[in-house]
Design a protein around this nucleic acid. Structure first.
Lengths: 338, 338
DNA sequence: TTGAAAGCGCTAACAG
DNA sequence: CTGTTAGCGCTTTCAA
């Protein structure tokens, strides 16, 4: 194994100089720096992670807690995770993968053993035990999603309220006067799940502001339920000319149900969906969407965490990512009343 | 921080004794062991991971390389990853998450810096550069999937050949005499992707063995293409009374296309699919499936890796997981010729 | 069955 | 701007 002493010898300097070249923690003359860097390259030196962690009290590793069972769309989960890994690498950190299988014990373990310096917790929900443990451990952390009480915690999420507003605004701009929100199954809202509630309030606020008639339907993603909801909306509420859908798994059956009811999109009915962007091109016509910005959420979470680790203050308690609307072919002005 | 010295003092023994209690590497009297264990519990001692890695040359961490873009079904990927984390924990190891973003450089880095002891690479394909790097590094590894040349490597995958055979056997047992394989898009097979080829040969071997007439169709998962394939099979090949589908994304549009063609499943046509088990209950009727055993594959990969780390020999070069057929409601005897 | 002590490779005072 | 050196907390010989 190549050690720092080997590099030092090869470059004709002391080990500490090599260390300082690597860390940039003190000024080094250009000449010395170059010689050291050359030696590092020639010898193929990589500092021993354990030794470094031991001496510096920094493992340069962050933990990522991924939920086993989740309300989140799985590909989104993975996208966020990958973005986190990439962003962490940009900050010279690695990512340790943790599940909830060990319960909160895993957090205690990796924190106490100094395996990681900090942690990102995904898919945080209102009644989540993990934030408590994080506070107790004093472990720097960033949550993706919001617990019931985010006080003293750093949280990142999409601004679902603004996202719903964006959908409504687009439809209002097109001339629609009555729109319906097709939301997650009843249970999700009642459980107090944060994002569902925030979408709803954003929808209500925006429709009120724009003077639109508004309907809300919770919708189970099962084929039958979706079909029933579609049928009911079309038959009982002919005034509704546009749908905002915040329920990823319900989208494919919904589009199929509309086709079955001879409702053309966007001719008879416009559809805007909130969810993973891939959904857009999987549907026909291509959906107008407000995508979940997985990439940005992951990066932002890492950046916030790094700020914390570097002792930068103050860190914002909650970060709501601004939504963007990506136009597709599923929205158009409402049909003319003929 | 609680150190091994604190524990030793508290228990009235030497640090080395505490170490040996933890590692079990030498005999300890029951009395001493109990005192030490009590002290560990009381003080809430967790050994410092870095110090341990430095002194023992073992990080007790394995790397998991997850592909960024993949032919694999994403939820399956995550299931395997989670199974790997759980299994690794059972062997007292943690999992470091790596992507291909750094290219093979990431592997070199974590190996040289002793951040990890070994690595599991997911979604290995025939022309994969990573196995070469693993050989070069001498890093203990297990691959999920098969490279073109698996010589000297340890690989785990589903026995796709046997899986196809299982599907054919079930259909033959039900009385079908002509079956079609709906496989992955043309490109996948031509690129030499291992699993597609193995499925095909299993299908051909089994249909020949059972004396069935066999058809094979590569199928792009796009709506249009699936519809065309379904139409062609139904119209041009009325003798075909059953389908074996090995193409996860094509399944939903296929089922819909059949419905559109007034072909009832399983009344007119039986369908068996290979893929993620969740697919079965997402379809109506519930599919008869040969699921990808994500859980077992993950566990097996870890077990093989641990055997390698413990120097147990010989390690099998390739492990093909036995497939299981899970009956659903999409298979029945062929329609009577009336 | 246990203890003493020498490192593992690196960082960060301290000293110049 | 650079070198010397004392640990970081643990494992593992060696010795008893």
């Amino acid at each position: 194994m190549v050690t720092i002493v080997d590099v030092a010898r090869h470059a004709g300097v002391s080990p500490s100089t090599v260390s300082y070249v690597l860390s940039g923690k003190r000024a080094i003359s250009a000449a010395t720096r170059e010689r050291v860097e050359a030696s590092i390259r020639v010898l193929g030196y990589h500092p021993h992670a354990g030794a470094r962690a031991l001496a510096s009290n920094r493992a340069n590793v962050i933990a990522l807690v991924v939920p086993l069972r989740t309300d989140m769309h799985v590909p989104i989960l993975l996208q966020i995770a990958m973005a986190i890994v990439a962003a962490a690498r940009d900050h010279d950190h690695d990512v340790l993968l943790l599940t909830n299988g060990e319960g909160t014990e895993g957090l205690r373990r990796v924190a106490h053993s100094a395996l990681v310096d900090a942690v990102i917790v995904m898919d945080v929900e209102p009644r989540d035990p993990r934030p408590l443990v994080l506070r107790e451990l004093g472990l720097p952390s960033v949550l993706i999603g919001f617990p019931a009480d985010p006080a003293g915690l750093t949280c990142v999420d999409l601004d679902f309220s603004a996202a719903a507003g964006l959908c409504v605004d687009r439809l209002a701009d097109l001339g629609h006067t009555a729109v319906a929100l097709v939301g997650p199954p009843p249970g999700v809202l009642e459980r107090g799940t944060g994002f569902a509630r925030r979408t709803l309030s954003g929808f209500e606020e925006a429709t009120a502001r724009r003077g639109l008639r508004a309907l809300v339907r919770a919708c189970d993603p099962a084929h039958q339920a979706v079909r029933a909801t579609a049928k009911e909306l079309v038959a009982q509420h002919p005034e509704v000319t546009a749908l905002v859908v915040h329920n990823e798994p319900a989208v494919p059956p919904l589009m199929e149900a509309l086709r079955g009811l001879d409702v053309t999109v966007p001719g008879d009915l416009s559809v805007v969906a909130m969810g993973p962007q891939e959904l857009a091109s999987a549907m026909s016509p291509r959906l107008t969407m407000v995508p979940i910005p997985a990439e940005e959420m992951g990066r932002r979470a890492v950046e916030l965490l790094m700020s914390k680790l570097n002792g930068e203050c103050p860190i914002p308690g909650s970060t709501l990512m601004a939504p963007h609307l990506v136009p597709g072919d599923s929205t158009a002005p409402p049909p003319s009343r003929s």
